[in-house]
Amino acid sequence: MTAASTTTRPRQQVPPGSSRAVTAAQLSRTQRILLGILGTGSLIALWQLGASTGVIPPSALPGPAVVAAALPGVLTSGEFLGALGDTLLTWLIALALGSAAGILIGLVTSAIPFLRRPSMVVVNVARAVPATALLPIAILMFGLATEMKVAIAFWAILWPIIINTSYGVLGTEPLRLDAARSMRWPWWRRQVYVTLPSALPSILTGVRVATGTALVVVIAAELLGARSGVGTFLRLYQQALRPDIVYAAVIVVGLLGALLYTVLVRLERRAVGWRASA
């Protein structure tokens, strides 16, 4: 692949947190795990200290013991699990639809020269308004059901996926396309066997970024009115003045997010393994 990493190059969506350099330091795996426990423990201790000295009022943030005590209840409550399932299903549908549409549009618009720049202009205009701002209009159009959540999350992730797809396509090594042409491959075969695999790393990065965006937007939609989902659950218990349950749920959602992210990174590595040493 090309090493086009100049600063002036228009950028893809690159997810941060790929902190290879930091963690690849001279620490062993065990050391890192122990230090991680120590560090996280110190934060929890700080939290406990704040709670027991009364610096943090319990109504704002109950102590770690209180929140931990609420965790099992949250994890076994049908209400929470149902809401979580609802959110994840919505998220998955939006992600599948948004990725499919975004990749397709990205491939088509960048394969056809006269559509390339005009479509990028449209994409950049369309995504200037944060998707969450459009929630009121989505609610007007789709009501408070799942369709509304899917629609808004779809809108939010469509543009970054189109952009990443088209950067991937435009970054295709021209020499490989020449090689394919010299082998007399027809247009479609060049697209499927050369352009698409070349663009894949960039597409997958786009999809990974989109998973985060989609979850944020789905939960935002639930907070602002949707009838079911984690956001709805959180809103309900915040209004019912049960901060312990709210915090427990927030922690579960965060851990789940981290898990999903890790899985995606693994899948991505497997899918573009050839890239590592290329």
Binding site: R11, P15, R127, A128, P130, V209, T211, G212, L260, Y261
Partner: peptide
């Protein structure tokens, strides 16, 4: 999901 950056540059 680290990057909900739907509206970056």
């Amino acid at each position: 999901m680290p990057d909900p950056s739907g509206a970056t540059s």
